[in-house]
């Protein structure tokens, strides 16, 4: 289980998180929604230790995320970045098998390549993609490679940062289905941040809406449409009028 308790983070005068409290039960898929700049990515990066919160605590399976063996902690996570964040200088298979080629999970290169090709196949890519470089791939293929890299070491917890941004609706649907399948198949705990309501309905067990640096509403995805929360209602229906001020 992941638990964020009263997490605050400011960048200069800009107070992004103002007491974020959230629980993600083990083996469930939590999707965090909210407008741009509300701190969704910051929240994920705080859990991973990429950004240090100014205040508050983060626990993973009851253990403080800031203490203990950092490598062992990070080995439990996989992350799909918004832009893929593939390493340009490495061929696709070495990107996917990055964790398996070095560090505590190191395997022989031939075995790591086999696993990489298997994971590429799992996300619908042919083995001939393995030796290409990320710059030679389309946006959708890069997302799939990013997804293959996120699951390569079979992590217990997977984060997805805007998994469908920049993709056409059909490719977005393919990625949503893949995420759902993989999370169920692996029994992983997943946290996804997105603006895309189709993604939310496809991926989520639970939804949390972040607004003004705190969780405005959280609950099961099936209750989202009947929440009676004016903020959530405005967001999920994409209305310009409502309690959330739209910057024009």
């Amino acid at each position: 289980m992941i638990r964020l308790e009263n997490v605050h983070k400011a960048f200069g005068e800009n107070r992004v998180l103002r007491g974020l409290t959230l629980e993600v039960p083990k083996g469930t898929s939590m999707v965090i929604i909210g407008g741009s700049g509300t701190g969704k990515s910051v929240a994920l990066k705080c859990v991973l230790g990429l950004i240090a919160p100014d205040q508050g605590k983060i626990f993973v399976d009851g253990q403080d995320a800031t203490t203990g063996d950092r490598d062992a902690f990070l080995a439990r996570f996989g992350m799909l970045f918004q832009g893929g964040a593939l390493f340009d200088s490495l061929p696709v298979w070495q990107n996917v098998a990055f964790r398996l080629l070095r560090g505590s999970l190191k395997r022989p290169a031939a075995e790591a390549r086999e696993i990489a090709i298997e994971k590429l196949r799992r996300v619908g890519l042919k083995p001939d993609v393995a030796d290409r470089f990320p710059a030679e791939l389309s946006g959708g293929m890069q997302k799939r490679v990013g997804l293959a890299r996120a699951i390569a070491a079979e992590p217990e917890i997977i984060f997805f940062d805007e998994p469908t941004t920049g993709l056409d609706p059909i490719m977005a649907g393919v990625i949503n289905d893949l995420i759902r399948e993989i999370v169920v198949e692996m029994g992983a705990t997943a946290m996804t941040i997105t603006h895309d309501m189709t993604s939310v309905r496809a991926i989520a067990d639970n939804v949390a809406m972040l607004h003004d640096g705190v969780i405005q509403w959280t609950g099961p995805v099936k209750e989202m449409d009947h929440s009676n929360d004016p903020y959530l209602d405005q967001f999920i229906h994409g209305r310009a009028e409502g309690p959330i001020e739209a910057v024009r």
């Binding site: 991973l48 990429l50 990070l74 992350m79 970045f81 560090g103």
Partner: peptide
Amino acid sequence: ATMKVTEQIDALVTLST
């Protein structure tokens, strides 16, 4: 710098490197 702005540095950290 390009690696930083495209989140490749963050990706390295998440891959325990």
